[in-house]
């Protein structure tokens, strides 16, 4: 794997942002970002390491770890990431009940794509996605690009409440709302799985780097799983 061009810029006085000059999704960049984060996580100098789609944030205390050292650690990790071979990850199946009350924006996608609901479901669920990043709120799962026919703009005015587990589309992105929150994504279905559950032994069902596949289920199955 070859290294993509990147740029390291300061993010405040305590962080660096590694930026990759891409506007859409790139598998190569995502793998590189997760390789760098994996390497840096083994070092204790970093307070936060946050992957994005086309960037990564490395946050540290400049009073304890000099910015010059931080920068060279980043360059080093980026260099090594070029030879990074992605580990074969187990694919995590996420059941989703598409359409109906769970996917109130299914019709909008049908209109923009000219596809039937069944075709949309099969397109959306046949692909394997990479978890690119988590957050803006706990459990929100940002996945790799959706099939092109399904791309659709966000709502101009976000909904004030989007139920936990909602699966949506925003531009080329697809993702899952981990907890109930406001949001503007086009909702096409919902999973009965709790992506984030603070009372569970492992509160996080997914983390960045995981591989995910959606499995279409009926409304009845949704209730049973839940």
């Amino acid at each position: 794997m070859s290294t993509k061009a990147y740029e390291i810029i300061p993010f405040g006085d305590s962080g660096y942002l590694v930026k990759f000059p891409i506007d859409t999704y790139s598998d190569v960049v995502t793998q590189q970002i997760h390789s760098v984060i994996g390497q840096l996580r083994a070092q204790s100098n970093w307070e936060e390491l946050v992957p994005g789609y086309n960037s990564l944030l490395a946050y540290f205390c400049p009073d304890k770890f000099s910015p010059a050292k931080a920068q060279s650690a980043l360059h080093q990790a980026l260099k090594l990431s070029a030879d990074h071979k992605p580990v074969d990850q187990k694919i995590i199946d996420i059941p989703v009940c598409y359409g109906g009350d769970f996917g109130p924006d299914m019709q909008a996608i049908e209109q923009s794509s000219g596809l039937s609901e069944a075709e949309i479901i099969s397109l959306h669920s046949q692909q394997i996605y990479t978890v690119c990043m988590m957050g803006f709120v706990p459990g929100f799962t940002f996945l790799s690009a959706a099939p092109e026919q399904l791309h659709h703009n966000r709502h101009e005015t976000p909904r004030t409440v989007v139920p936990a587990g909602s699966v949506g589309i925003a531009g080329w992105q697809t993702g899952i709302y981990g907890i109930e929150s406001p949001g503007g994504w086009q909702l096409i279905g919902r999973t009965p799985y709790a992506i984030f559950d603070p009372d569970r032994k492992n509160p996080f069902l997914l983390e960045a780097g995981n591989q995910v596949r959606f499995v279409s289920i009926s409304a009845r199955a949704f209730e049973t799983v839940k």
Binding site: F11, L17, G52, S55, L57, M133
Partner: peptide, 10 residues
């Protein structure tokens, strides 16, 4: 329109 990216307090 910008791709979702990391933020910090401040």
């Amino acid at each position: 329109s910008m791709t979702s990216s990391p933020l910090l307090p401040g």
